[in-house]
Design a protein around this nucleic acid. Structure first.
Lengths: 204, 204
DNA sequence: ATATAGTTTAACCAAATAGTTAACGCAAAG
DNA sequence: CTTTGCGTTAACTATTTGGTTAAACTATAT
């Protein structure tokens, strides 16, 4: 094949640029021209490699979902004790989001904006990831190793405390007069603060 | 004045329609034609009563902010004990969001998309609302009436657990197979579950 | 009845934007 | 050296979309 390296290079550069623009502006706010400019190429190339805005978006969205979800599954599936699992989850998940600050809002916003599209196009077999965790909590409660609490509430409490600060990031930074670095430091703290807060509440 | 009732009626209908469309689709995704259709009027009327899309958006956004913020201030300013204050806050705030499911994501998304615009156009004197709460917590800790915890973490934990479920609502409903009614029931529970969870963690 | 002034509408306009095309460039194969 | 075919570009097209305008309508005051 001719120009394979250049080809791959362009393909890749488009993806990187598209990711940047889509994550920052969302599907509705993103402009194909912005993506082309960001990639430093002609707009026609976007259509040459990825047929349409929607196709390009799907690529990025799929990649975003792959980052947003599966780490959870890995950790939940691991055999470590519940409390350690909670600690590990918070730490790993916050770490991931620190590397992709815009990811959570991007994903959740797009899911909200096009729930049907998301459901039939991307939601496959992801149902189970919560149930497994819930079952494990239920077992702990039954074994009297922790207080009685509805697993659904515990689960979403944990997720909320990890993700929400990234969604409210600019507002939170304004409210607390944090700069970028301080925010990152704050989230680093939360990697241990959240598990501590949770365990303090549910331990017997 | 001529046609005052009709006038007010139209003005109002535009606002209602605009609110619906903007909250559902966001600034970038909303179409003036959608708003006109929703209001059952001619598109030109939008510009007759509210000069531009941006002006109309500002109206809606300002109204949204007024709903999103000030309840917090009232409660935090009240003289009731901290633990009751936490309970009241969660209950009132969740109640408000149950009446405006799309509000949190709308506000937070727009703030993220246009942080500078928000900062200079809408952010005035709102800095203090967190500091007051933080000071109160610090006092409680010093008085040894609760465990030592960084007020910033406690505050955002509370906010996160209240707001986040609304932001992840469609995803959460898919994960748990909840329907609209079950979700509302779930959030009703959280009005007491969240304070319980928090207080369990911080009480001495 | 007629004039007046605010309200409403259909038609129109200009800019923005996703997508297309035809020609050009260029490296490899023959 | 020429041919081949993918990669690339500038220019173009069609559609969407925010915004405008001039005429028509309507209720009220005189």
């Amino acid at each position: 094949m001719v120009n394979k390296e250049v080809n791959d290079n362009t393909r890749e550069r488009i993806l990187i640029a598209a990711k940047k623009v889509f994550l920052l502006k969302g599907m509705a706010g993103a402009r194909m021209q912005d993506i082309a400019d960001e990639a430093g190429i002609n707009k026609a190339m976007l259509h040459y490699y990825y047929r349409s805005k929607e196709k390009l978006f799907e690529m990025i969205f799929e990649e975003a979902l792959a980052q947003f979800f599966p780490k959870i599954v890995d950790i939940i599936d691991s055999g470590i004790p519940l409390f350690e699992k909670i600690a590990l989850f918070c730490s790993e998940y916050i770490d991931m989001m620190l590397k992709n600050t815009y990811l959570p809002l991007f994903v959740l916003n797009e899911v909200n904006k096009q729930p049907e599209y998301f459901k039939e196009r991307f939601w496959k077999g992801k149902n189970s990831l919560f149930e497994k965790f819930a079952a494990e909590i239920a077992a702990e409660i039954k074994g009297r190793r922790m207080k009685n609490i509805n697993p659904a509430h515990l689960f979403i409490n944990m997720i909320s405390m990890c993700i929400f600060p990234f969604i409210a990031k600019p507002l939170w930074m304004m409210s607390t007069n944090m700069d970028e670095l301080q925010f990152r430091g704050f989230m680093e703290q939360r990697k241990t603060e959240i598990p501590k807060f949770i365990i303090e509440s549910i331990k017997k």
